[in-house]
Computed example of a mutant assay.
Amino acid sequence: MSALNAFVVAVELAERRRDAARQTLASVQGARQAAQAQLDQLTGYAAETQQRWGPKAGAAVQPEVMHHHYQFMGRLDHAIGLQTQTLSGQDQRVAQARQALLQAELRLASLRKVLERRRADLAQQQQRREQKQTDERASLRAATRTGAVDQE
């Protein structure tokens, strides 16, 4: 029975690990969504700024203003590049968290299967013991009846 208790404890531990892996995945997915939202905001702002400051027919803009605009757009493009790298890192973290969750779920499923098999084996052993005891009692009764009949 202690071996069965050890498997029950192992299953409970595996469940806690699976739950922790599930929570980690949710957290990492939330961070990835936040990174994606920030990237979307940056690209939207860049597109809006380019549209507002882009070359217009017949518009005269001083060279210094255009220089500052190009400089600002360069910095904005750099920020978009950095955010894209951040998003790529978040994608990797999500993939790793998914894999960890999958491994935890597989471990839990295998432990549950072993536990159920052990329980079935113990139940079968118990049934055999009970059957053996029943057979022995029946044999003793038959022997006592036969002995009682022989004595008459």
Rank of each mutant, 00 (worst) to 15 (best):
A21C: 01
Q71G: 05
R137I: 03
G81D: 07
Q96D: 08
V149K: 01
E130H: 03
V114I: 13
T84V: 05
G58Q: 02
D77I: 08
D77S: 10
K56Q: 12
R52W: 11
R117Q: 10
A100E: 11
A148P: 02
Y70R: 10
T134P: 00
Y70K: 06
E136L: 07
Q125Y: 12
S2R: 12
K113T: 14
G81Y: 12
Q83M: 08
T84W: 02
H69Q: 04
Q50F: 06
R93F: 00
Q124E: 11
S2T: 14
M73C: 05
V11K: 09
A59C: 01
G74V: 04
A3R: 10
A46L: 13
S110Q: 14
L140E: 08
G54A: 11
A95K: 05
K56T: 07
Q126N: 10
Q92K: 03
D19S: 02
R141K: 11
A3F: 14
R141D: 13
V65I: 08
T43Y: 09
A104F: 02
D19Q: 03
P63K: 09
G89M: 07
Q125P: 02
R128C: 14
S88I: 07
Q38C: 07
R32K: 07
Q103W: 11
Q33E: 14
D19N: 04
R75G: 14
N5G: 13
Q90E: 05
V65L: 10
R93L: 00
R128K: 14
Y70N: 15
T144Q: 10
V114T: 14
A35S: 08
A97E: 00
H78W: 12
R52G: 09
E130R: 03
V11P: 10
Q50Y: 07
R119N: 09
A26H: 06
Q62Y: 10
Y45V: 12
M66C: 02
E15M: 02
A46H: 13
T134E: 09
M73A: 05
V114P: 04
A109W: 03
E116S: 05
V9Q: 15
A143H: 06
V61D: 04
R145D: 14
L82Q: 15
D77A: 10
M1D: 15
G30M: 11
L42G: 02
L102F: 15
L111H: 06
Q38D: 10
R141W: 06
L115G: 04
D91G: 09
A142C: 10
R93W: 00
R18M: 03
L140Q: 07
L106E: 14
A46F: 14
A97M: 01
L102H: 15
R98D: 02
Q38A: 07
A34W: 07
E116H: 08
V65S: 04
